[in-house]
Design a protein around this nucleic acid. Structure first.
Lengths: 238, 238
DNA sequence: CGATTTCACGTACCGGCGGTACGTACTAAG
DNA sequence: CTTAGTACGTACCGCCGGTACGTGAAATCG
């Protein structure tokens, strides 16, 4: 038998409303990639990474494994593409929420609400929170997060801490940010898993808000913070 | 060909210093299980769940797949056994650290230190934190944690919050606990990933301690906490 | 103490899945 | 029109998780 025909699987080529400035080849290419990422995104969300076969992905995307392997180096690369898309969207959503808010405390509050919204998205929960670390490995997972959602948390926390009379160095600010980030992730998961997300979300806001109040109280009292590493005890601002 | 012999793989049966009150069969059984769990623990830690084949596990444990499938229903069940062992050990370690400490704030501090120690263990990081949610699924993961390490955090947080003038209901305490738990996990990961774990650990202690100070300050000021769900604004204790 | 049952494995095999090798049609460039 | 490269499609392989079944030693029973 011959290797038989290798005709395009979708003869009725769908609308290619991609980038108008690109050639037909590039349009085909990017539309195929989009179809793959979208299909993979759904399947990963529903069944998880391990339980999603490449065959099912390419079937849902109306292409074949050859196409997939032409664009991506393998299954993990597809996952990574999905991950990056979700993370980018999430970061943009949160960034939008905090944009323009001047008061650091209100900014933190706005960011918190946006974060709690994001974490309700099933795809985000599954792909980023649940399977991200295991599939990408902790290193790559960290890198990705550091570039997107964590960066925003860092900025917000930085703003809040700068409101205090302290001079904190970068490692210390990072530490605070990590703590808040972890708190938010965990709390967000709790919210998403709750049978009454509304109430749970309100509780989280209240709890975090209360802790922020605590920090603020220390600020107002002019309590000094002693860096355990540098030994710098940041005194009051003049 | 006949199915050939099915002689025991380890004819020189090793010392069976297990439970003296058990029969030989039970001793064989539990020693095999221990060997499997230990081998799997090492391999999972080093290569991760997906990259560890059952063949490699049974080879390291000096048994065959038949033995493994006799004791466990499959690969995931083996992972679960490893997970449970690690979690139990970790919980015991932390519980020991907080045991006997009376002052809630000091108790929290001691627990924090113990937690930061636990999270340095590569097996704990890999099996519990990194791959636990993905392999077990978030539901089972949660259940397991709730029974062990999270339970301790809950208790400690409960103690701390009870020190305040507030009357918090269970969901609110849970929320605070989740927040702290997430903060600790994330911070712990940061510590473990740092190139100077000592310094990083000190920073985390300082940061968390500072936030506890904030809470304490609110306590001292008699600030009331308003539950957003119940609407209860817990006034001062008289 | 012999017979029978039960348990704790060992062996052989299967189906599915990730990955690869290679072939082909369509496109853009000259 | 030729030519080179791209964007796929097809056939196949090796590994791995899981299963079916066999076997001998230990417990149980009469």
């Amino acid at each position: 038998m011959s290797k038989s025909a290798a005709k395009r699987l979708i003869p009725s080529l769908p609308t290619l409303p991609d980038l108008p400035g690109a050639t037909r080849r590039q349009q085909y290419s990017s539309s195929t990639k989009r179809a793959l990422v979208e299909a993979a995104s759904e399947l990963f969300t529903e069944h998880g990474y391990a339980a999603t076969s490449l065959d099912s992905i390419v079937a849902a995307a109306q292409v074949t494994k050859g196409a997939l392997y032409h664009h991506y180096s393998g299954k993990q690369a597809v996952f990574e593409a999905v991950f990056e898309r979700i993370e980018t969207e999430a970061a943009a959503s949160i960034a939008k929420a905090v944009k323009g808010v001047k008061d650091p405390w209100r900014k933190a509050s706005a960011g918190l609400r946006a974060f709690l919204d994001v974490v309700q998205d099933p795809t985000y929960r599954r792909v980023v929170i649940q399977e991200g670390p295991a599939v990408l490995g902790y290193e790559r997972f960290r890198e990705q997060e550091e570039r997107s959602s964590f960066a925003i948390v860092l900025e917000v926390v930085n703003n809040v801490l700068s409101a205090g009379p302290w001079e904190l160095d970068q490692p210390m600010i990072d530490t605070f940010s990590r703590i808040f980030f972890g708190a938010l992730s965990s709390a967000g998961e709790g919210v998403a898993a709750s049978d009454d997300p509304e109430a749970a979300s309100a509780r989280v806001e209240a709890a975090i808000g209360f802790m922020l109040m605590g920090l603020r109280s220390l600020v107002d009292q002019g309590i000094e913070f002693v860096d355990p590493v540098t030994g710098n005890s940041s005194a009051l601002a003049e």
